[in-house]
Amino acid sequence: MTFVEKTNIMNGKEVRRAMTRIAHEILEANKGTDDLVLLGIQRRGVPLAGMIVEAIERVEGEKVPQGAIDITFYRDDLSTIGPAPRINETNVPIDVADKIVILVDDVLYTGRTVRAAIDVIMDWGRPRAIRLAVLVDRGHRELPIRPDFVGKNVPTSQREIIKVRVTEFDGAEEVVVGEVHE
């Protein structure tokens, strides 16, 4: 099976601009940086959360707390996972109780990852609110979950695959649509 790339839908500049806009929208909705905590979902949500934190710092001159969460042990599909997935670090740097948590992920699809991530956060404390920021919303939700901040809406078919590439893990920054061929 091979991944065949069809179209490049965002280049590095477009990704950065989208995350900068999301940073502004978060600040506007939250009326500033008070009580904000950004948590990226491992792995690609983590550098994306970092971009938002940097953008907020450029605008407000303040660095909001940032962390990472791994959802592996909160998945709902243990009996069908297949190969043991790689487990990454969970790092919640401050007490989330009464904070406004902005959960950041690369692609929003079925909503199951976000469901698991919400449970992870709840086990760390009781935030005042959890908001969701994603770079790409590709539709096909299986749970009643919606994003609060979206980089780009991309209508897809379920056969298609969205790949978000970030410098840390992929050496490039872009979003591509492709398909898997047998």
């Binding site: 099976m1 243990l78 009996s79 069908t80 996972i81 297949g82 190969p83 043991a84 997935p85 898997v180």
Partner: peptide
Amino acid sequence: GGDPGQLGAPA
């Protein structure tokens, strides 16, 4: 972590 028949399927 899964049915051995499924192992090797893509994540």
